[in-house]
Amino acid sequence: MAISVKQVEQVAYLARLELTEQEKQIFTQQLTAILEYADKLNELDTEQVEPLHHILPIYNVMREDVVQPGPPREETLSNAPLVEDGQFKVPRII
């Protein structure tokens, strides 16, 4: 299935990736090629097949509700580009 430049732009926005005009063109071609290859799957009738979400036959993996101390705050913040008052600083939302 072919994908359009406009779709590439929408997807890039959803994925929060700023693309150059050139990248948009290249990705449009490349994604089209990959998706056309993926269309091969349509050769298979999977009407009656259940999707396989988890390869392991395991269920109910749970932990007990017991508090464990986390790392000191300096560690959590140690890789942050900008910090203020023990918090991560980000530019305005809107």
């Binding site: 008052d85 918090q87 991560f88 600083k89 980000v90 530019p91 305005r92 939302i93």
Partner: peptide, 8 residues
């Protein structure tokens, strides 16, 4: 605002 702070 010009910026916001994130508390997790």
């Amino acid at each position: 605002t010009t910026y916001s702070l994130v508390n997790l």
